[in-house]
Amino acid sequence: MTFKLIINGKTLKGETTTEAVDAATAEKVFKQYFNDNGIDGEWTYDDATKTFTITE
């Protein structure tokens, strides 16, 4: 399955996707992406659209 990440950061904005077997696996991938890029904020997940959103 394809999961999308929408980034609404102070310095970084955009979208990316990842292929994962489930939302929990995608969450781990995206959290690592947050850490690697110094993004910290509030994030949500919409199961209907398989979209994670992080807002700094």
Rank of each mutant, 00 (worst) to 15 (best):
E56M: 12
N8I: 14
T11S: 09
Y45C: 01
E15A: 07
N37L: 15
K31G: 03
L5K: 01
K4Q: 04
A20E: 03
Q32F: 06
E56T: 10
K4W: 11
E27G: 06
T53R: 05
T18E: 03
T55C: 04
G38C: 12
K28R: 13
Y33V: 05
L5G: 02
T18F: 14
K13A: 09
F3M: 01
N37F: 15
T16N: 05
G41N: 06
T16I: 15
A23H: 06
K31I: 10
G38T: 09
D22I: 02
T11I: 12
I39H: 04
I7V: 08
Y33L: 12
A24Q: 10
E27W: 14
K28A: 12
F3G: 01
E42T: 13
D40T: 14
Q32M: 12
I54T: 03
Q32C: 07
D46G: 00
K10N: 10
E19A: 07
V21C: 09
K10M: 11
T2I: 14
Y45V: 01
I7F: 13
F30S: 00
V29A: 07
A23G: 03
F34R: 07
T18N: 03
W43T: 03
D40S: 13
T25R: 05
N37H: 14
D46I: 04
F34Q: 15
L5Q: 01
N8G: 03
I6C: 05
M1E: 10
T53Y: 08
T44W: 07
G38H: 12
G14P: 05
T53I: 07
I54W: 15
K13G: 07
K31C: 06
V21P: 14
F52A: 00
E56W: 13
I6P: 00
A26N: 00
T16F: 15
M1Y: 15
L12I: 12
A26T: 00
N37P: 05
G14T: 14
K50D: 01
Q32G: 07
D36Y: 07
T51Y: 01
K4G: 02
N35K: 14
A24V: 10
I7S: 02
V29F: 15
I6Q: 03
F52N: 00
G14C: 15
Y45Q: 00
D22F: 03
K13P: 06
N35H: 13
K4R: 13
V21K: 13
K13N: 09
A24T: 08
I7R: 02
N8P: 02
T17G: 03
I54Y: 14
T53C: 06
I7Y: 10
G38P: 12
K50S: 04
M1A: 07
D22Q: 01
N35Y: 13
K31P: 01
F34A: 15
N37Q: 14
Q32S: 11
A24P: 07
T16H: 14
V21G: 06
F52D: 00
D22R: 01
I7P: 00
T18C: 14
I7M: 07
T11E: 10
N37E: 11
D40F: 14
T16R: 15
K50C: 04
K10E: 07
A26Q: 00
I6H: 04
T44N: 06
T49L: 06
E56G: 05
I6R: 05
K10I: 15
T25K: 04
K4D: 02
K4Y: 14
T17M: 09
L12V: 11
K13E: 05
E19Y: 15
K10F: 13
K28C: 08
G9V: 15
T55W: 11
T55Q: 06
T51G: 00
E42M: 12
A48Y: 10
Q32E: 09
A24S: 09
T49F: 04
A24I: 08
E27I: 10
D40I: 14
D46N: 09
M1H: 12
V21Y: 08
G14A: 13
T11P: 04
E19V: 15
E42L: 12
K10L: 14
F34K: 12
T17A: 07
A26I: 03
T17H: 10
E15Y: 13
T2R: 12
D36P: 07
T51H: 01
Q32T: 10
F34H: 04
I39E: 04
D36S: 10
T55H: 07
T25A: 14
A48M: 10
F34L: 15
M1T: 12
I54R: 03
L5Y: 02
T44C: 08
E56I: 15
T51E: 03
T11C: 15
K28V: 08
T51I: 04
A20W: 02
K13Q: 10
Y45F: 05
I6V: 10
Y33G: 03
N35M: 14
T18P: 01
T25M: 11
K50H: 12
E42D: 11
F52M: 01
T2D: 04
D40Y: 14
K4M: 06
K4H: 13
Y45H: 00
